[in-house]
Design a protein around this nucleic acid. Structure first.
Length: 426
RNA sequence: GGAGAGGUGGCAGAGUGGUCGAAUGCGCUCGACUUGAAAUCGAGUGUACCGCGAGGUACCGAGGGUUCGAAUCCCUCCCUCUCCGCCA
């Protein structure tokens, strides 16, 4: 959520930043409502002050022995009643305007950082660096991961339709073991780097989804449990953010680093034609997530190191990738700056997103009412949150099945995974 | 699913209509004492919004009602805990 004060004080600047994301963001309505609200508030609080005064006066006089039907008391009661009528008129007006402001605020995205490249679509994302070109496979006849996977009998899409729907997969034998090995390997790597592991609930309530930005605008993207105020989590980012929701942390606790494995569930509404085959776009997938709660002064440095931490997974697996700085038009709702890691997928002849690392500054913290206090300093501040995949497991498996494919139709197991899997070849 | 208890400040815990934003204890901050620390003593210590400021307003789970006045009374909802049943 954008700070309303920020909008009030620098409307042109905020508007210009939002325009970099695309058209359709107009601050005029919210500015007008804010002005109205503040005018109403002045009048209302003056009336309330008088009402409080009357309450106290009556109390004092009664205690001093005045009778309930004393003319003075009756006059005060009468004035109190008149104020009550006026307030009954003003209060709903103000409440309604406040609710409108809140509704609009919740649908405005985080204004991009000046360091985010300007652009309209993903075509204008900027490549920052590339790694591992020496590991690009030389085998000319690489099968798509879903074909080699089905050949090896380690995954099955067709039967998964019977269990659920399209866009679901069942992993079998070495496939299931590889998924598990990847999760274990990634968590080990991150916990060794100081990220404290969590295993949060994956059914989450609306307040949690609102805090991290999925609600109210992106309700269509998540699965909802009809009878309860519970949703299937689209990413561990959501439960981790809300783990500390409505808390005031102390500055010494920062930074807090967490990692978490969770299944993730996404409806993928509006992407019907895309990636219909394989492990790339499923309704349910596994992911190891990285998350940081940090002091505002450090969040951009923390984004660099967070991205590097995600890169370490690809480096350890010797999978070629590139780092892309997302442009303003492609940026996620809550983020001011995002690096995507894209892994090489030989069957498609291109790099595909496997991790997204974002600095959400105070945007989620404000929605989550998540603050910290610096000793000696007055008041509280919103902290900054960052999240990144470290990594999406299914897409990692796809990359391994393709990049490690051998001419004889087997797939080598990356060296670092062999101890986890107990075999060198699939 | 059945029965009961309860939601108050960083925490514990009083408060059942009036000067209560809220006793007391713990914690924390500053000061005194001490070579230093502990102990002790003294002072302070919620958040948000409006206002240049003085100051004002709101908040005792949420919403509504009664009243001149509600943490306190009434209604609705939410959540937590305990016991029983069922269950991985």
């Amino acid at each position: 959520m954008i700070d309303l004060k920020q909008i009030r004080e620098n409307p042109e600047q905020v508007q210009a930043q939002l325009n970099l994301r695309g058209d359709g963001y107009d601050l005029q309505p919210i500015l007008a409502l804010d002005k109205q609200q503040r005018e109403l508030e002045v009048g209302r609080s003056q009336l309330q002050a008088r009402s409080n005064e009357i309450g106290k006066l009556v109390g004092q006089k009664m205690k001093a022995g005045a009778k309930p039907d004393d003319p003075e008391i009756l006059a005060l009661k009468d004035e109190g009643n008149r104020i009550k009528t006026q307030l009954a008129d003003l209060e709903p007006q103000e409440r309604e305007i406040k609710a409108k402001i809140e509704t609009i605020l919740l649908t405005l995205p985080n204004p991009p950082s000046p360091t985010t490249p300007v652009g309209k679509t993903e075509d204008e994302n900027v490549e920052v660096r590339r790694w591992g070109e020496e590991y690009l496979p030389t085998n000319p006849n690489i099968l798509p991961h879903y074909e080699i996977g089905e050949k090896l009998g380690i995954l099955n899409f067709e039967r998964s339709v019977k269990i659920a729907q399209s866009r679901f997969v069942t992993l079998i034998g070495a496939g299931a073991a590889l998924e598990r090995a990847l999760i274990q390997f990634m968590l080990d790597l991150h916990t060794q780097a100081g990220f404290l592991e969590m295993l949060p609930p994956i059914l989450i309530n609306s307040a949690s989804l609102t805090a991290s930005g999925q609600l109210p605008k992106f309700a269509d993207e998540s699965f909802k449990c009809d009878r309860d105020d519970l949703w299937l989590t689209p990413t561990a980012e959501v439960p981790i953010t809300s783990y500390y929701r409505d808390e005031i942390l102390s500055a010494e606790q920062l930074p807090i680093y967490h990692c978490a494995y969770t299944p993730c569930f996404r409806r993928e509404a509006g992407s019907y034609g895309r990636d219909t085959r394989g492990l790339i776009r499923l309704h349910q997938f596994n992911k190891v997530e990285l998350f940081k709660f940090v002091h505002p002064d450090t969040s951009f440095d923390e984004l660099e190191s967070l991205t590097q931490q995600a890169e370490r997974v690809l480096q350890a697996l010797k999978l070629p990738y590139r780092v892309m700085a997302l442009c303003t038009g492609d940026l996620g709702f809550a983020s001011v700056k995002t690096y995507d890691l894209e892994v090489w997928l030989p069957s498609q002849g291109k790099y595909r997103e496997i991790s997204s690392c974002s600095n959400c500054t105070d945007f989620q913290a404000r929605r989550a009412n998540l603050r910290f206090k610096e000793p000696g300093k007055k008041g509280t501040q919103y902290l900054h949150t960052l999240n990144g995949s470290g990594l999406a497991i299914g897409r990692t498996m796809a990359a391994i099945l393709e990049n490690y494919q051998q001419p004889d139709g087997t797939v080598q197991v990356p060296e670092v995974l062999q101890p986890y899997l107990g075999r060198p070849v699939l």
